[in-house]
């Protein structure tokens, strides 16, 4: 296993599902996906239903066979069982044996992961404590709520001390307190150098823990980057300044400077609420739209010349959810247009 290899490396990965009696119906779940996840990252995979997220994760775990390209875990081809030795996995719709107790279930899956009995004996109580399931250790899995199953499933995924953890909707069905605890565990794992590949629909959660995110739509990556990169609105800035004189404002091209007004739900600037009203320090909030750095500086110069005192100017950010919806909707619109022009 090469030491310097990325935790996950995917090159032109393609997967076409064929169905029907003569295998004539096809679905292209992945269309030449390329991706690298470095060791120690918490990587978030986003995408609408049917985007190909699960197929990508399954391809990486050798559960489905790609029809093209290649996938590697720490430099080892994902189709080889050795590639999964340093991997922990919590599937979305897991079905743990209901007749086993949590402790016995962990022991069995630990054995399947190749963990030695002595280590299992020491590690199981420790992990059950970590996921707050110690009290239910000897209760049957069949009696667990969805949240308890998720916590036990997470313990299962962590049992072999994985270097790479695949989590598919880990907080699904978990209460807010439990979600917070799971997030804390993920952050702790990152600090320990574990790579986490997170697939979640809870975008706020992804936003809080992931260092990098990719959006998959219709089997293709449409965006990839850090949370900051993705949520930063291009060429839009939030300005806090003393009131702008009417003549200065009119001198600017239309749409360059607008009162910030009531922000749409979810929008914020570095955690502060926006509003058109004056603040106690007699400043107001505006939105500046400038298509380049030079343009932005020109606007600032004009404002300064007009006697406006600037308090702060920050690139405008939107939530990951806004960004995600924007990207996915644009994709759908594009497809709609494409359909219209087709004969």
């Amino acid at each position: 296993m090469p030491e310097d290899a990325p935790a996950v490396a995917v090159r032109d990965l393609a997967k076409t599902y064929r169905s029907g009696v003569f295998k004539t119906r096809t679905v292209e779940a992945l269309q030449g996906v390329t991706l690298e996840v470095e060791t120690g990252e918490i990587f978030g995979l986003l995408g609408p239903n049917g985007a190909g997220k699960t197929t990508l994760v399954k391809s990486l775990l050798g559960i489905v066979y790609p029809t093209g390209g290649r996938a590697e875990l720490f430099g080892v081809p994902a189709t080889r069982s050795a590639a999964r030795a340093p991997v922990g996995y919590l599937p979305e719709n897991h079905r743990f044996p209901e007749f086993l107790t949590a402790r016995k279930m962990l022991d069995t899956y630990g054995a399947l992961s190749g963990v030695a009995p002595r280590e299992r004996k020491a590690r199981i109580p420790e992990l059950l404590e970590k996921v707050k399931m110690a009290e239910a250790a000897d209760a049957r899995v069949g009696t667990f709520s969805k949240g308890m199953l998720q916590r036990t499933g997470l313990a299962q995924a962590l049992l072999s001390r994985p270097r790479l953890l695949f989590l598919d909707e880990p907080t699904d069905g978990v209460d807010p307190v439990g979600r917070r605890q799971i997030r804390d565990i993920l952050v702790e794992l990152r600090a320990e150098g574990t790579t986490v590949f997170l697939n979640s629909h809870l975008l706020s959660e992804v936003e809080q823990v992931c260092s990098r995110v990719a959006i998959l739509n219709e089997g293709e990556f449409v965006r990839e980057g850090t949370i900051e990169e993705l949520t930063q609105s291009e060429h839009v800035y939030d300005l806090r300044a003393t009131p702008v004189p009417e003549e200065t404002r009119q001198a600017l091209p239309e749409g360059v400077l607008t009162p910030a007004g009531e922000p749409p739900p979810g929008e914020h600037t570095d955690g502060e609420a926006l509003g058109a009203e004056a603040t106690p320090a007699e400043t107001r909030r505006y939105r500046v739209t400038a298509d380049s750095r030079a343009h932005l500086n020109d606007v600032i110069d004009r404002l300064r010349r007009g006697g406006v005192e600037l308090e702060s100017i920050t690139p405008r950010r939107q939530t990951l959810e806004d960004y995600f919806i924007d990207v996915v909707s644009r994709g759908e619109e594009g497809r709609g247009k494409e359909k219209e022009v087709r004969p």
């Binding site: 069982s81 991997v87 996995y89 899956y109 299962q156």
Partner: peptide, 15 residues
């Protein structure tokens, strides 16, 4: 072969 069970088993390091 059930989804959710086989996935977990196949994710283990065994052929």
């Amino acid at each position: 072969l059930e989804t959710g069970h086989i996935d977990l088993l196949l994710s283990k390091p065994m052929s």
